[in-house]
Each structure stands twice: as structure tokens, then as C-alpha cells.
Amino acid sequence: MQPKKMLDIVKDSCPITFVKTKLALEALVTGDILEILLSGGEAVKNVPRSLRAEGHRVVALEKQQNGTYRMLVEKEGSLGKDS
């Protein structure tokens, strides 16, 4: 699962985190993987959830040594939806 693109929003806060993520995903095609680096706290509480709510699929999410998170999102991924 090779990310097409990497996005670092560790230093951003809501709602900039959403805007940057949305723009990055818009530049991709369905099925592409976006790698996102984000901070703990509010960002990791909100960004993954809202990506899912908008129809994307969070493939992986890992906590890093330094407390930030690394996430892989599949644009409009179909797996894991209500079935």
C-alpha cells in the first residue's frame, strides 16, 4: 500500500487540519493512499473520524514515539463501510 502523497499537519489546528486534508485528497483519485502526519489530542480525535464520515477509509493509524500519529487514508475506499 504505497502512499501517493504525504501531508504533514502536525503543527496545524482545527479547522486548518480539515482544509489541508480535504485539498490533498481532492488532488488524488479514488483508491489512492494519502499519508498524513498529525498531532495527538484534538487532531487525532477529529480528523480520522471526519475523513470516515466523508466517505474515505482510514487504513492504518499508528502512534509514533514522539506522541504524534501517522495515518494512511484511502480516498473513497469502499471497504469497512456498513455491510
Binding site: V44, K45, N46, P48, R49, L51, R52, R57, V58, L61, M71, G80, K81, D82
Partner: peptide
């Protein structure tokens, strides 16, 4: 309900 709200996979 925080776990439900935050869970990235549903």
C-alpha cells in the same frame, strides 16, 4: 461515547 466518536474505522 468518545470511543465511538473517534474510532476511525467505525
Amino acid at each position: 461515547g468518545e470511543c465511538v466518536t473517534a474510532c476511525p474505522s467505525g
